[in-house]
Amino acid sequence: MTELIEFISSNIQMIYIVILMIFVGVEIIGHVPAVLHTPLMSGANAIHGVVIIGAILVLLGVNPENYLGQALGFVAVLLGTLNVVGGFVVTDRMLEMFKKKK
């Protein structure tokens, strides 16, 4: 119990962010027309590519003698980039089509 209280008190800012972001996410998606579900999912998919920041931090902090760590970190950055770049470009391609007809 003390551990839990300690956990909450030392991470209070992050807990606030988590709770508020959950509501923001719910609100944003609330009334989106079905037409946009696919692009929206694709866009959200690109945004969670933010995990690449973590992968970069891993590589920046890795011990120079930890070759396995460096190799895995390299792969993690590569995969994260694929997620970000692929995700945004695909979403843009989908949306480009919606824009054309006016």
Binding site: M14, I17, V18, M21, I22, F23, V24, G25, V26, I28, I29, G30, H37, L40, M41, A44, N45, I47, H48, V50, V51, I53, G54
Partner: peptide, 15 residues
Amino acid sequence: MLTGGILVGSAGTIL
């Protein structure tokens, strides 16, 4: 990472 991740997590669940 926290904001981006939670945002997609909650929006994705609703979707």
